[in-house]
Design a protein around this nucleic acid. Structure first.
Lengths: 211, 211
DNA sequence: TTTTAATTTAGACGGCGTCAAGATAAGCCA
DNA sequence: TGGCTTATCTTGACGCCGTCTAAATTAAAA
């Protein structure tokens, strides 16, 4: 059996062990960091591997390909958003109207705070590809949280219009999503305008609910 | 050589003159084709040059870099959309309410018909980069067409709410844009749902205008 | 005509995603 | 303990990409 003397370390810096320990998580976290700070196009598997301190091809043992990694980053975003929404919904100290307000503003805040990740989460690349198994399910679970809000409204008799809660949720989520994208993509630039448009939309939504 | 183009014109490569004639336009048209049919990620300058029948680096004399080419494709999309909107607005045979309906449905149709180009038009890449000079102006001209519709409404006294027409336009455009993206990105998949959501939104908009 | 400017070209460089083979470490069963 | 299996990580290579440089070709101007 050969001893270890002839295999001097290629990486000068490293007394890293051969096995990383939890490479998958490290790759995912680093990817989220890079995407949030520099955008999706700045993420290359090679640089990522370098940052994490591992060889070029190591990531392929944890993600099928680059697309799978991006899907994982997007899923992480949806999970964060789901948590945010369910926290608002389950906050027993807040009246229903306040919940709507908080959900809308929290959602907008996420989109504005992490615009590049938000763009990834809703881009065609991931939605027209059945490959990434868990992703679409995770995303839809997030939307379900939002629908729950309208079911709460309905249960409390706060919806006068005969539109079904699901349709109302779809319609208002589309509006919220549109505003979120215009804001996070930098098309609506002024923060105060965005806040004002959102407030106006919520106000008008309340009118619709009563009608 | 007696023979001219009509025999061996299978490819654009055979005996083309050294100077293309209108390479810029040819590149732009081919780019729109590729992006619409195969998506932005499928567009490489090298394949594009090959399709048009010129060398790898020829495009650089007409577009500063790949980003400039993409900006031109996006601008083309906004021009098409502007034309669509102004046609609706200037159609004297249509009553105002029908114009709103037509504008919304035409806009949605464009987004669904050309999803990859629509994604390009509104992506962060082009909106957070002051480089591409004409682009943002072209896009804003398109939005201005949409605002004109609401100014028409206001002029005819059809808006009872005290919201300024610009705010109404911003708010409803955000909603329209959100629905367009959800539809064109493949998140709302069923065509009939999309139509129905749009109809619902327009119906509710009319309520808001009267309120 | 000669000169100049516009246009297109081949060549080269570094970065990218990812496939194929080999190296290493850890887990498991005798 | 030893030896087999499997998961994990590495080096090397391939082809495609955007784009820089310098040279070649053609059209336009003088």
């Amino acid at each position: 059996m050969k001893d270890t003397s002839h295999t001097s370390n290629l990486k000068a810096s490293a007394n890293q062990p051969y096995h990383h320990g939890n490479l998958r998580l490290a790759l995912l976290n680093a990817s989220v960091d890079i995407i949030r700070s520099q955008g999706v196009s700045a993420l290359s598997l090679r640089k990522l591997a370098d940052v994490v301190g591992v060889s070029r091809t190591a990531p392929y043992h944890h993600f099928k390909d680059k697309g799978a990694l991006l899907a994982a980053v997007a899923s992480q975003g949806f999970e964060e958003l789901s948590l945010l929404l369910s926290n608002v919904i389950n906050d027993d100290n807040a009246p229903l109207k306040a919940k709507l307000q908080q959900a809308v503003m929290g959602y907008l805040d996420f989109a504005i705070q992490h615009p590049t990740q938000y763009e990834l989460m809703f881009g065609q690349a991931l939605w027209q590809d059945e490959q990434h198994d868990g992703f679409q399910r995770t995303a839809k679970d997030c939307f379900r949280q939002y629908v729950r809000l309208f079911e709460l409204f309905a249960k409390q008799g706060l919806i006068k219009t005969q539109e079904p809660p699901l349709r109302l949720a779809q319609m208002t989520w589309a509006s919220l999503h549109g505003l979120a994208r215009l804001a996070s993509d930098g098309i609506f630039a002024k923060q105060e305008d965005i806040q004002d448009i959102a407030q106006t939309a919520v106000r008008h939504l309340e009118i619709i609910l009563q009608k």
